[in-house]
Design a protein around this nucleic acid. Structure first.
Lengths: 193, 193
DNA sequence: GTTAAATTTGAGCGATCGTTCAAATCATAT
DNA sequence: ATATGATTTGAACGATCGCTCAAATTTAAC
């Protein structure tokens, strides 16, 4: 029972990531998961319940990726790789570039209360992970000690969002790689190229 | 006939901005515009047609704001003001912070082809306006001549998107003002504060 | 004041939405 | 083999979706 559930969540993730929360219909999910409505509802309760599990899984994966940066040596180098990595996917996975949280947040006014809360929590969790990156970079001497960590973490999260959003509409990977590098430069504080 | 049409577009803008393209129903628009369906359809053809006029109007206003920065003296100072300005609206207008184009783009996979094209065009137009700001700043000596203008314009558009997106979920205006200032600092190249 | 054209009205169309639930099927234990 | 519980099925519900169009109303011209 455990494994098929994980698989269902991943299939549902594909759909929500492609179509958004409002744009995804239960029938889309039924097709992607190859399950009938009663089955989905007994397992997840509602469209909202299914989305919440999808969001949790998505956030966990992203959180781990960022914490891997924070736990590495050469933090800034790993951060640069992290920022660059999603910009090279093939066209068929183009919808996976945009941050799922930001994408869902666009439907804010129409979302169930539970989804709104989960989005806020997810954003805060990821901001904490970015903060861990900052602090680690400070501890290894790659960043100055006297930074306002909270604000820099928010700024870094904003840069991540900007990169992922631009990547959905800007066709040139070289420009995005350039921007990823500039972000790291702006983090350290000198304008390099 | 001309003026009421303008008024209708503004009322429709409110709804689309609050609820997004998919989240907005014709009945929401009928209520906001105080018109019955046949009237709206004879004037705008379809929900898509109405949205396209809304998007055009929104883009025009934003384009003018950015060009006002480009046409001012003290370009970077005006840019800072422009980046700061939307972060101080009251809560009832909170939905007007997020960029309408980015918000609509989140529903990408489910949008009519005409809306997709219009979004791409709008983003490109605004990027041109940001580029005009860069070039003006160069011409008055506030930025170095040898910048890659296209990429910096894309970067600046990304910063704008990041600020507006963060502002919808971060409660502290001071942090966002700090970030707006950092954006201008990163544009000139030195890490101030 | 009458007429013709332009505009608005609002009931209602077919399609799709999220969801339910009785019945069928599958799994497990004895 | 058979009984029992867990799971899945799929038809169908009420609500809402974008949209249509004949009828009513408003506007403009003479």
């Amino acid at each position: 029972m455990g494994y098929p559930r994980e698989q269902s969540i991943q299939q549902a993730t594909e759909v929500f990531w492609l179509k958004g929360y409002l744009g995804t219909g239960m029938r889309d999910l039924q097709t992607a998961m190859d399950k009938r409505p009663g089955s989905i509802y007994s397992a997840f309760g509602s469209k909202e319940g299914l989305y919440l599990e999808v969001l949790n899984h998505y956030t966990d994966v992203l959180h781990e990726q960022i914490m891997a940066v924070a736990n590495s040596d050469n933090t800034l180098q790993q951060l640069r790789e992290f920022l660059r990595s999603p910009l090279t996917v093939d066209d068929s996975a183009a919808h996976k570039i945009q941050c799922l949280i930001v994408k869902t947040q666009a439907d804010w006014a129409e979302l169930p209360e539970g989804v709104k809360n989960a989005l806020q929590t997810a954003l805060a969790n990821l901001r904490e992970a970015f903060k861990a990156v900052i602090i680690k970079a400070q501890s290894v001497g790659e960043l100055p000690r006297e930074l306002p960590e909270e604000r820099v973490a928010m700024w870094l999260q904003g840069q991540f969002i900007a990169l992922r959003t631009l990547a959905t509409s800007v066709a040139l990977p070289a420009s995005l790689t350039w921007m990823a590098d500039k972000i790291v430069s702006d983090l350290t504080g000198d304008w390099a190229q």
